[in-house]
Design a binder for these strands. Structure first.
Length: 601
RNA sequence: GCCGGGGUAGCUCAGCGGUAGAGCAAACGGCUCAUAAUCGUUAGGUCGCGGGUUCGAAUCCCGCCUCCGGCACCA
């Protein structure tokens, strides 16, 4: 089978603070499982993302700390990058939106859309901060609701009566940031002409029968009331507008969302350049057979199903980057998303995550006490794949101890301990019985069944099936009782343990996308060398302007793992095994709840 | 308010037109190689409420209750 080109496009974490486990549950972990699976299958995967570093919230954090937006972005780019590395998220390129490359690609898309008439100018009445002169987004304006009299209504809606509002509707409007009344004045903005693409988008989305129904329905509905959308803001922090009259102005920039989605393309271009093959990204973006999978939370659906596709349609095969005169992909437009995999939300002990109220567990804090695979297991088996789900410490401990440790960890440990102690290497089997053949066939079948579920982005079902297969091997061992058999018939015991080892070795591959760290350790206990999948590394990239930034990447071409059944050689020497996972004390629940309580004070 | 998605065993969830399912928790039993891990058996639900379509409805339709999300300048 020809290797497929798969683009795994992961939502860009916003760099105004550390990210909590809800963020990585929604897109990071699922996307990584998907990417790892496809790499094991031998497909050519390009997994890209980065930190999203423009926009109002970062400027507010900077103001509060008396520093620059760039300093804030630098700090959280580092923390978030470290988190993703520690979680084993195997990005080909995890970069950032403040690179010269990203600015160039963003401006190319803006300029191309503008020249083709898809970006139009319009004057609007904007709200500005009286103290800083910057745009005050509707959400940052508070006042009394003209309908119900609630005095903490926001500029976009009243949380008390639910009415849709304009900031100018509010009685006694004031900035949420400094309490001053906002200044309203006319300002020119650029609008993306979304209605120009409405029919094309509708026809395209109609054909996407493989999308999750909520994604498709929601997007089609969104198309019904499509209006031009402002893509600039009165802000000094952002990508400059690439038009002569704005080149020297520092008060109007491209809106963060417009540049953030372009990151999928700019990061791909950066990946190719860093690799020394500047046109390599075209194999994913202009190859008609490539498939693009986007992973994000449900709040971001329309940016990926409507707005970004509209931008891509408008850009087509043009611009400075898209054009490939005389090249292999001359005149071929950029690819639209193949699937948009949206997750629901994770809640924390029954409540919404809230940094300000202390209802939160940050990724780095979590990983300082617990293993990445334990978190990856929980977020996959109990995560918000199809509906909102709740993270509780009690459930985390229970799933870790009763499922991960007891079923899979114990199967590995009892098998390796027995074989290591009694044989030291993979034993030579005698003739296989029907029971032996059956368990081998069932586990081998998992390569197919779990693989199909992974390809369909049904991660919860895929991991459940893998766990069921591990339980099947535990049943097999209970029935065969090799620890008894060895006392009278060493050859038969050797056969049983050989079968169990083969099953464990196949399950190791099946579990690798979900649990890469423990699978690697198991790989070594089984006597193999090299990396089954990994490792990740950081790379420092210096651009033409002399600035340097750090990119998370990895040498994934070197992976030795293949999505195939075990071919464990008889006689291979095992290494001394250790338990794969840590059993957690029940006291962890109380400790963590107390920790959360103290943060809330 | 409008749009979308949920409400199924004590808990977490799967099923989405053809005799109610899984894991965990519970009760009992087996095993003791393994991180007291494991294996088996049992028990447990008028599938949010009310109507309708159908030979047959968790599953389709209508209404209602309730929870979550989105609603265009939060990202």
């Amino acid at each position: 089978m020809m290797p497929e080109h798969i683009l795994v496009a992961v939502a860009w974490p916003y760099a105004n603070g550390p990210r909590h486990i809800g963020h990585v549950a929604g897109f990071g972990v699922p996307a990584d499982i998907f990417a790892r699976y496809h790499r094991l299958r031998g497909n050519r995967v390009l997994m890209i993302s980065g930190t999203d570093e423009h926009g109002t919230p970062i400027t507010l954090v900077a103001d509060k700390e008396g520093t620059t937006p760039q300093a804030i972005a630098d700090r959280y780019n580092k923390i978030i990058g470290d988190d993703l590395y520690n979680l084993g998220l195997s990005y080909d390129t995890f970069t950032r939106t403040t690179t010269a490359n990203h600015y160039a690609v963003t401006q190319d898309i803006f300029r191309t859309l503008y020249e083709r008439g898809y970006i139009i100018r319009q004057e609007t009445l904007g709200a500005f901060s009286a103290t800083t002169g910057r745009t005050l987004p509707d959400r940052y304006i508070e006042g009394t609701c003209p309908i119900c009299g609630y005095d903490e209504a926001r500029g976009d809606q009243c949380d008390n009566c639910g009415s849709q509002l304009d900031p100018t509707d509010l009685i006694n409007p004031r900035s949420k940031v400094d309490g001053q009344p906002p200044v309203f004045k006319p300002t020119e903005h650029f609008f993306l002409d979304l209605p120009a693409f409405a029919e094309q988008l509708r026809a395209w989305i109609d054909q996407q029968g493989h999308w999750r129904p909520n994604v498709r329905n929601f997007s089609l509905n969104f198309l019904k009331e499509l209006k031009p959308r402002a893509i600039t803001r009165d802000l000094e922090w952002g990508v400059p507008i690439p038009l002569p009259e704005y080149s020297n102005r520092d008060d109007k920039k491209i809106y963060v969302w417009f540049d953030a989605v372009i990151g999928y393309l700019s990061a791909s271009i950066e990946w190719a350049r860093n690799r020394g093959e500047p046109d390599a990204w075209r194999e994913w973006w202009q190859n008609p057979d490539a498939r693009h999978f986007y992973f994000m939370g449900k709040d971001n659906i329309v940016f990926h199903t409507v707005i970004w596709p509209a931008m891509l349609l408008g850009y087509g095969a043009g611009g400075q980057f898209g054009a490939n005169p005389g090249g292999k992909y001359d005149g071929i437009p950029l690819q639209l998303p193949y699937n948009v995999v949206s997750s629901e939300f994770l809640t924390m002990e029954g409540k919404k995550f809230s940094s300000s109220r202390g209802i939160v567990i940050y990724v780095n804090d979590f990983l300082s006490r617990y293993d990445a695979d334990a978190l990856r297991y929980f977020l996959t088996i109990a995560g918000p794949e199809n509906q909102d789900t709740d993270f509780t410490w009690a459930e985390f401990v229970r799933r870790n101890n009763d499922e991960l440790v007891a079923t899979w960890g114990n199967l590995v440990n009892r098998t390796l301990s027995n074989v290591y102690k009694n044989f030291g290497s993979v034993p030579q089997p005698g003739p296989l019985t029907a029971a032996d053949e059956q368990v081998l066939a069932e586990v081998t079948g998992g390569i197919e069944t779990v693989g199909e579920l992974l390809a369909a982005a049904r991660f919860k079902a895929a991991l459940s099936e893998a766990m069921r297969l591990a339980a099947q091997v535990n049943i097999y061992l209970s029935e065969q009782e090799p620890w008894k058999v060895i006392k009278s018939d060493r050859e038969r015991a050797a056969t049983i343990w050989y079968v169990a080892l083969r099953c464990v070795d196949t399950l190791k591959i099946i579990f690798t996308p979900f649990l890469p760290f423990s699978s690697q350790r198991l790989h070594e206990y089984l006597g193999y060398d090299g990396y089954i999948a990994g490792p990740l590394r950081f790379q420092d990239v210096t651009e033409a302007d002399g600035r340097t930034h750090r990119v998370l990447t990895g040498d994934y071409d070197q992976w030795s793992g293949r999505w195939e059944p075990s071919a464990l050689p008889v006689g291979q020497t095992l290494r001394q095994p250790q338990p794969l996972f840590k059993k957690l004390d029940e006291k962890v629940v109380e400790e963590e709840l107390a920790r959360m309580q103290s943060r809330a004070l």
